[in-house]
Each structure stands twice: as C-alpha cells, then as structure tokens.
C-alpha cells in the first residue's frame, strides 16, 4: 500500500524521495514544506521516485519546478525515476522536462556522454588510479604509499616472474579496452594483510590471495566510481580474478606505447598496478 506522505532517505550525497500515492492539495502543501528543507541538504543529487504515485494535481508540478530551480542554484541535480507515461506526458505538456529530468534507461541516462582524447583518457585514468591507491593504503592499511601518476616503469625492469600473484580486471566495452593488473609478491601481500587485519591474525594462503584481489577491487572500484561520476567515463563493474605464477605465461604484455606500469611503494614493500591498453581478451 502506498504511503500517505512522501519520505526521504539520504545516502552518500543522494537524497532519495519516495512520493506518496496521492498528490492532492494537502499532500502537496506538506511536500512543499519538506522540499524547502531538502533544498538545504548537502546532497549532489535529489531523486523523486514516482512508483507509488497514482494521481497528481497541477500544484505538484509547480512545487517540483520551484524545487528544481532551488537545486539548480546550488549546483545540485533533480532527477525522476519510475515516472509513468501519464505523468511524463503531463510534464512534457507543461514544458518541465528540464526540471524533472526523467530517467528511463538506468543508469546510462544519468551520465552525460563526453568525448575524450586518448591522451586525456589515459592521463585521467592514471591520476585517479593513483588517488585510489592512496585511499586504499591509507584507509585500509593505515599506511602510506608513494606513487607518481606521471611515471611508468619499464616492463624489462619489472619482469612478471618476480611476482607470485597477479590479480586482474578486464575491461572491454565501447569506452575502453584494457586489462588492469595488480602484481605483487606473496611476502608483500602478507605484510599488507597483516597491516589490515592486525599482528595477531594468522595470515594463510587464502588471505594472501584475497588481499591481492581485494586491493585491486578497491583501487579499480574507487577509480572507476570517481572517473564515471566526475569525468564522464563509462567503466564497468568487474570482479577481479587471480592468476598464480603458473598462469603468468597467459599474460601477453603489450609494448611500451600500450602499457603503463605504476609502482606503488609502501613501507611494507612495493606492488605494481599496470594498465595494458593492448589487451582485448582476458589473460
């Protein structure tokens, strides 16, 4: 049964508003009072969910337009989801599409498409990967990492056979084709795991492998989210996979023009994040 009043929930900069089943005059008056409060929230995005709304009055559209204007002045965005065709038709008739920002294809419609040069794409990718590595090491491991987004080690200086484990994420969509690899020795992964879990934890082989996977998950995931949100990238969610030493022969590293190797140096040892733009299939 639809709620009698609108409700909202705020998470990570998103104010999610569930509209009530009926938007008569009383409901709109209550909604306007709430909208005035919501407009003051520190939220980058306000979302109106129409799923429960069965009927509406003109007063609602006027109120929503005013709300959208207030948000625009604060560089905040209003979008609408689960809007029925009847509501969408009325929004269009009133010329309010720009206020309501109906989202039908989710999440694609949320992001504006942007064309990036190859250079800009790579520059931003390395910048955000470095930031993600800082965040992962500082927050999870309570340590520091040194990484220069403008520096790439040479492949011959970092042969794969010096590592014990490589976790990888393969991206292959219309935006980017590349393989992201995190390369490390077991010793370094063991130290990183101990930093994460404390000195009393017994670090077994499963934990070491999990560390390789989760570290790449955090670095790729953090970079992906920020790049997609802030730079209009379209990187997909991917679950990392693990390669052990016996599987390294499957990795065909590309030449220098297509391969960037970022050393990440911590007090517990170094690991490497490499981005291979010459790969379209998983190693």
């Amino acid at each position: 049964m639809a709620a009698a009043e609108s409700t909202n929930q705020v998470l990570e900069g998103v104010n999610y508003i569930t509209l009530p089943g009926s938007l008569g005059e009383d409901a709109v008056n209550t909604l306007v009072a709430k909208m005035n409060g919501w407009a003051e929230l520190d939220a980058e995005m306000h979302v109106m969910d129409f799923k429960a709304t069965l009927n509406f009055t003109n007063a609602f559209f006027v109120a929503a337009q005013a709300f959208a204007e207030k948000l625009k002045a604060k560089n905040s965005k209003l979008i609408s989801v689960n809007m029925s065709e009847a509501v969408a038709k009325e929004v269009k008739r009133l010329g309010l599409e720009a206020s309501f920002n109906r989202i039908q294809n989710f999440p694609g419609d949320l992001y504006k498409k942007k064309t990036l040069s190859e250079n800009d794409l790579r520059r931003l990718l390395f910048k955000y990967l470095a930031q993600a590595a800082f965040a992962a090491v500082e927050t999870t491991l309570q340590s520091t990492v040194s990484c220069d987004e403008n520096y790439s080690a040479k492949a011959e200086e970092v042969p794969l056979n010096q590592f014990d484990m490589i976790s990888a994420v393969n991206v292959n969509n219309d935006f980017l084709q590349a393989e992201f690899r995190l390369c490390s020795s077991s010793k370094v992964l063991e130290r990183l795991a101990r930093a994460m879990l404390g000195p009393d934890t017994v670090i077994d082989a499963e934990l070491i492998e999990s560390m390789a996977l989760e570290l790449l998950n955090m670095i790729y995931g953090h970079a992906k989210s920020n790049l997609n949100d802030k730079e209009s990238f379209r990187l997909p969610s991917v679950i990392p996979r693990l390669m052990r030493k016996t599987e390294f022969n499957r990795i065909k590293r590309s030449g220098a023009a297509q391969l960037t190797i970022m050393p990440m140096v911590t007090p517990m040892g170094a690991f490497y994040v490499e981005v291979d733009f010459g790969t379209t299939r998983p190693s």
């Binding site: 998470l11 998103v14 995005m45 999440p107 949320l110 500082e138 995931g221 992906k224 920020n226």
Partner: peptide
C-alpha cells in the same frame, strides 16, 4: 567500492538501509 551516484541510487531503490564505501 561502488561509489557512483547511479550505484547509490540503485541501492536506495532496492531497499538498502545504509551504505559504506570501500576502503
């Protein structure tokens, strides 16, 4: 580690109570 606005919205629509971003 999912922290995009689209992901937050999707989780809100699905009925998640709260959200913590990794790391």
């Amino acid at each position: 580690s999912e922290n995009e606005k689209g992901a937050i919205l999707k989780s809100l629509m699905s009925g998640v109570t709260d959200y913590i971003v990794k790391p």
